[in-house]
């Protein structure tokens, strides 16, 4: 790829205070500052946000779905991590 092409950025927007930043999409920009400005125009034209994060896409390390088995399956048989695993007498109403 030519160095002249604008890199790709991932855009995260907090829609209001109290909520987390959420992935909204991506866009191309020459640098972080321009990515912020473009994100404002592309993803928040209708008050969708109060805060924006931009991260250059190449800096994101993602898990591979092929490894989903080893990554996520071990959690499936650990029912004791959930409150419903434990037996309580009926008299205990809230715990």
């Amino acid at each position: 790829m030519s160095t002249k092409n604008w890199p790709l950025w991932e855009i995260f927007v907090r829609s209001k205070n109290g909520l987390e930043h959420r992935h909204f999409g991506s866009l191309h920009a020459a640098d972080a500052e321009m990515a912020l400005e473009n994100a404002r125009d592309v993803y928040t034209r209708r008050n969708e946000g109060v805060s924006i994060w931009v991260v250059e896409s190449k800096n994101i390390t993602a898990s591979n779905p092929e490894n989903n088995g080893e990554l996520f399956e071990p959690a499936q048989d650990k029912v004791y991590r959930h409150p419903t695993f434990y037996d309580l007498p009926d008299e205990v109403k809230h715990m």
Binding site: M1, N5, L8, S26, L27, V42, R45
Partner: peptide, 21 residues
């Protein structure tokens, strides 16, 4: 301006399939 935005949403979604802008 919305149409420009829609084009951009769709281009970046297409790029996730491994084709460059």
């Amino acid at each position: 301006q919305d149409e420009a935005g829609h084009g951009l949403y769709l281009y970046s979604a297409t790029e996730t399939l491994g084709i460059s802008r």
